[in-house]
């Protein structure tokens, strides 16, 4: 599935998107992947699925057609 990165996350991963393969397609596996590959801590990231922030603690299944974005803290204003 395609994952897009913004803000500090794009800086840490050094890319704005990537295609990743998860054995189990859910938010929990995605968090583990990001932590293992890039050492991104859970509280440094927010996850948006189809442009809505989702809970990082609930069991949420992801589909290949979902737009999945990993966002750092907001800093507008």
């Amino acid at each position: 599935m395609k994952v897009i990165y913004f803000g500090k996350i794009a800086d840490v991963t050094n890319k704005t998107f990537e295609e990743i393969q998860l054995e189990k397609k859910d938010v929990k596996s995605l968090i583990i992947y990001l932590n293992e590959k890039y050492a991104i801590d859970l509280n440094e990231m927010q996850i948006a699925v189809n442009q809505n922030l989702v809970s990082k603690s609930e069991q949420i299944t992801l589909k290949d057609s979902d737009e999945i974005a990993i966002l750092s803290a907001f800093a507008g204003g």
Binding site: F6, G7, K8, A48, L71, S72, F74, A75, G76, G77
Partner: peptide
Amino acid sequence: VKEEVPIFG
């Protein structure tokens, strides 16, 4: 805007 809009600085 500050809380909800995904703007990064």
